[in-house]
């Protein structure tokens, strides 16, 4: 570079029409988040979705739940107002690493074993629901 020349960092820039997919993404993500937040008032519950059905337990009662999926059994623990994947037969162990969930709206999932854990809320008193 010669004397007096300045380096121009020519980074890619967005064009006006690029904003359409960006705004659509934000609107859809925000809309889904808003719909989720609307359902979070009441007694905290743990919803566990497995290939065998959906199970709902209150957060106030400690228990182990063996959730059976195509790979084997994922063990979910509910204790001290928290729920988490204790162990899972999946290869990547992301579900276990997602850690403890306690706030309504939080979730963890083992996709290879098709198990989904979600903290939700219900207005009525519930002991156990299975569907």
């Amino acid at each position: 570079m010669g004397r007096g020349e300045t380096a121009v960092l020519n980074l890619p820039r967005m064009k006006g029409w690029d904003l359409i997919p960006l705004l659509l993404t934000l609107v859809l993500a925000g809309g889904l988040a808003w719909m989720g937040v609307r359902q979070l008032e009441g007694q905290p519950m743990v919803e566990i979705q497995t290939p065998e059905g959906q199970f709902v337990y209150p957060m106030s009662t400690d228990r182990y739940f063996p959730a059976r999926g195509p790979l084997g059994t994922s063990v979910i623990t509910i204790r001290d107002g928290q729920a988490w994947f204790e162990s899972s037969p999946c290869q990547n162990q992301i579900c276990v690493q997602m850690g403890h969930q306690h706030e309504p709206g939080q979730w963890a999932a083992c996709l290879p074993n098709r198990i989904f854990l979600r903290i939700t809320a219900r207005r009525e008193e519930v002991d156990v629901i299975s569907q």
Binding site: T25, L32, M35, G105, R114
Partner: peptide, 18 residues
């Protein structure tokens, strides 16, 4: 895979996907 529960993960998937 997850039934109606799948929509719960929508905001994270769409946000990080964006």
């Amino acid at each position: 895979l997850l039934g109606e529960n799948a929509w719960v993960i929508g905001p994270v998937i769409l946000g990080t996907g964006g």
